[in-house]
Computed example of a mutant assay.
Amino acid sequence: MLKGTIEYAPSTFEERGAAVAFTTPLLSQTRVRKGERSRLEVLIPSLSEGLGIYVVPWKAVPDMVPMTMHDRYLHELIVKEDACSPHEIRRVTMKVARRGLAGPKAAQAARAALEEDDEQRTLTNYLLILAILKAAGMTSPDMLATDLDTDEGQRRTRDLMTRAATSLRLAPSVLYARLSELAEVVAPVGLYQSPKPGRLLRVFNELKGFRDSVDEWAKETYSDASPVASFCAEVAQHTIDIGDGVLKAFHGRIDAMGRLMRHWDGELAEVRSHAIRMSWLLDGWDYVINAWDASLAQDRQQQTLTVHELFRIIPLVPREESSRDLNGEAQKLQAVHRRSVRMLEDWRTGRMDLEAIRRIETVKARAA
């Protein structure tokens, strides 16, 4: 079933694959991608070889690893929906979590996250309306004071948007359709001027906090784990540097709302491309951030173990996505990692680590 171990140095995000929030320790944060003939395959990080990975046909995973009930259902649903991108994997993961198979707290967190998604789309839609009115040369003091939930508020909004459509030389129906499509693309990232950041922008900001926290821990800790923690902080900083550029380009397109509406097809494609790249860039970081945050309430030994667990799954930026390649630096740390890594589950005997499963479910309950 195994294709064998390979050095994990992907060239593209698609080759790196999308992280899957399994609760079985060995499978936690493994990545799914499309391999030969577009068949799904899973990349399982080697617990003892640092960046080495096992490439396993997706359908063979249940025969190879004893899986929790949550993971079996998640595995089946990913196959059924042919999910492979971060957006698709998150959608499927939320469906499974809502059923309570990863515990009631994870189910509650999933429901809250989906409600927050709806609220974010509504907020983004409203902010984009304001941006459209501004692009049409219209002031909107009335709009700012409008309660969109009332009949009067909706009528006033329609009147303003009709006037904006005329100014932009678009049919009102076309303007509304473009607004709706744009909001769907923008909402997961979020707008800078939003009083509440979008999901990806929030993870991006939390990544900066992770960088600072794990870097400080590395400087204060005198052990073999210190250089591993420093490397995790370095990977975070590398991701942040790239993300800053992506967000600047993303928001720059939206700020030029008039041009976006007039040159719709090309401009929307660019906005969508930046949003997709941001989702791939941050894929897997929410688990890393939440796992580290959870460890801060524990003793130094558990924090050290967490550092090594995170090193195993740290989302390295693919070679073609950056001029800098950190794989060489990661390989230098493999010897230290091998001396300190803790086996979460012995897949060869099928022994399940219930404490590790509980810890993973706790992290899932913190994730958005």
Rank of each mutant, 00 (worst) to 15 (best):
Thr5Phe: 02
Ile6Tyr: 09
Ala9Met: 14
Glu15Phe: 07
Ala19Thr: 09
Thr23Gln: 09
Pro25Lys: 11
Gln29Asp: 13
Arg31Gln: 14
Arg31Gly: 13
Val42His: 04
Glu49Ala: 10
Glu49Ser: 10
Gly50Phe: 07
Gly52Ile: 07
Ile53Val: 12
Tyr54Arg: 03
Val56Arg: 02
Ala60Cys: 04
Val61Gly: 01
Asp63Leu: 06
Met69Pro: 00
His70Trp: 08
Arg72Phe: 00
His75Cys: 02
Ile78Gln: 09
Ala83Cys: 05
Glu88Lys: 05
Thr93Tyr: 11
Lys95Asp: 14
Lys95Met: 13
Arg99Asn: 04
Ala102Lys: 03
Gln108Cys: 08
Gln108Thr: 08
Arg111Ala: 11
Leu123Cys: 03
Thr124Ala: 03
Asn125Gly: 11
Ala135Trp: 01
Met143Gly: 02
Ala145Thr: 07
Thr146Asp: 03
Leu148Ser: 02
Glu152Met: 05
Arg156Ala: 13
Asp159Pro: 06
Arg163Gly: 15
Arg163Met: 15
Arg163Ser: 15
Ala171Val: 07
Leu175Arg: 06
Leu175Thr: 04
Leu179Gln: 11
Ser180Ile: 07
Ser180Glu: 08
Ser180Lys: 14
Ala187Leu: 13
Val189Gln: 14
Gly190Met: 08
Ser194Glu: 00
Ser194Asp: 01
Pro197Ala: 04
Val203Glu: 04
Asn205Cys: 05
Glu206Ile: 02
Gly209Val: 04
Val214Pro: 00
Trp217Gln: 01
Lys219Val: 04
Ser223Phe: 00
Ser223Ala: 02
Ser223His: 00
Ala225Glu: 01
Pro227Gln: 01
Ser230His: 04
Ala233Lys: 09
Ile240His: 09
Leu247Trp: 10
Ala249Ile: 12
Phe250Met: 14
Phe250Ile: 13
His251Gln: 10
Gly252His: 04
Gly252Thr: 05
Arg253Leu: 03
Ile254Cys: 08
Met257Cys: 05
Glu267Ile: 12
Ala269Met: 14
Glu270His: 13
Arg272Thr: 15
Trp280Pro: 09
Trp280Ile: 10
Asp283Tyr: 11
Val288Glu: 03
Ala291Val: 03
Asp293Gly: 00
Ala294Arg: 06
Ala297Tyr: 02
Gln298Tyr: 03
Asp299Tyr: 01
Gln302Trp: 04
Thr306His: 00
His308Asp: 08
Arg312Ser: 15
Arg312Glu: 15
Ile313Gln: 10
Ile313His: 12
Ile313Met: 14
Val317Tyr: 07
Glu321Met: 11
Arg324Ala: 05
Asn327Ser: 15
Leu333Gly: 01
Arg338Pro: 07
Ser340Lys: 10
Val341Ser: 14
Glu345Gly: 06
Asp346Phe: 13
Asp346Trp: 13
Trp347Ile: 06
Arg348Met: 13
Thr349Phe: 05
Arg358Leu: 13
Val363Leu: 07
Ala368Pro: 04
